[in-house]
Amino acid sequence: MAAVRSTANDGYAEHAMISKDALLEMLGRTALFGALEEAERKAVAQEMRETSYDAGQVIFARGDAGRDIYLVTAGRVRLSVLTAEGRELSFAHSEPGQVFGEISVLDGGVRTADATAVSKVTAMTLSKGALNRLIEQRTIVREAVIKFLCSRVREADHQLEGIALYPIEVRLARFFLAAARQKPDFKPGAKVVLDLPISQSELALLIGASRPKVNAALAMLEDGGAIERKESRFTCDIDELEDIAGS
């Protein structure tokens, strides 16, 4: 299945959807480029191109050649695979400030998953050639790439462990905790408000469960005071979630 691709704009010009300063700040928060000095991040930004996708649009498909890595600047991207039975398994979402699509770019293989826009998405792309030049020229980028890939392996291990060993309410608690800890203003023990504009079906894909079971588990967390729901907004009690998650 060929990916439906959008046309990228030239760099972060005046008509771009993200300002130069905002892009530099976002790059500074990523695991790949956060250790770079501002001048080096500017060099990375100059190599990036802006692109956008509509909700439901395929950004790339499993088996495609890996030509670019992506930095999400707005919206949400689902990373998933199809089983032999045709069931979709969603293993991650990429949100603003997160990088995806790096594996095939780094190892020269094909895409290992489908990437689909859950909502309208804007992103900055960095070509394989540009990334390879950065890796060759800057030791700090090489080290960051190694750490980044190791973190991906750890995340995959934790997710597989959760699906194999833990009840759905525990998986949900861990999902909310992981999302809360990514917030810049996260404080241990404090309540955290999460805006998660995704359906229960999408949430079920992420934690490897059915929608009815996710709905029941959400009600259990809410009855126990671990979360409060109001449409797509969740107020999370970190202490309660940690007790449920066993962390």
Rank of each mutant, 00 (worst) to 15 (best):
D157A: 05
R154G: 01
G86C: 08
R138M: 15
R171C: 03
L177A: 04
V81M: 14
G108T: 12
I140P: 00
L194W: 02
I146R: 12
R111L: 07
R142K: 13
N132A: 14
A92D: 14
A156N: 09
P167E: 14
L149V: 15
S151E: 13
R154T: 12
F175R: 01
F100Y: 12
R152M: 09
D114A: 07
A84H: 12
A92C: 03
A180W: 08
L106H: 08
D107G: 00
A115P: 04
S127H: 12
L149Y: 08
R154E: 13
Q98P: 05
E95P: 03
E95W: 15
G86P: 06
G101V: 03
R138P: 00
K120W: 02
T116Y: 04
G101H: 04
D107N: 14
P188G: 00
L194N: 05
A190E: 15
E143I: 05
Q98T: 08
D114G: 05
A130L: 08
L149D: 08
L196P: 01
I146W: 03
R181Q: 14
V105C: 07
L149M: 15
V105Q: 07
D195P: 00
P167R: 11
L89Y: 11
V170G: 02
V105L: 07
Q182P: 01
G109A: 12
F148C: 07
E143T: 13
Q159Y: 11
L172T: 03
S94H: 09
L134S: 07
R133S: 13
R142A: 15
G101W: 04
S104L: 04
D185G: 02
E169H: 14
S104M: 06
P96M: 10
I168G: 00
L126F: 10
P96N: 08
R111M: 05
R78W: 05
Q137Y: 02
A180T: 03
T112P: 02
I168T: 14
I168N: 03
G129R: 11
I135Y: 13
E169Q: 13
E95K: 06
V110D: 13
I135F: 10
V153A: 13
A123E: 05
A113Q: 05
V81Q: 11
G162N: 13
L106A: 06
A173P: 12
T122S: 09
V193I: 13
F176K: 06
T125H: 04
R152D: 05
F186N: 06
L89V: 14
S90M: 13
A130M: 04
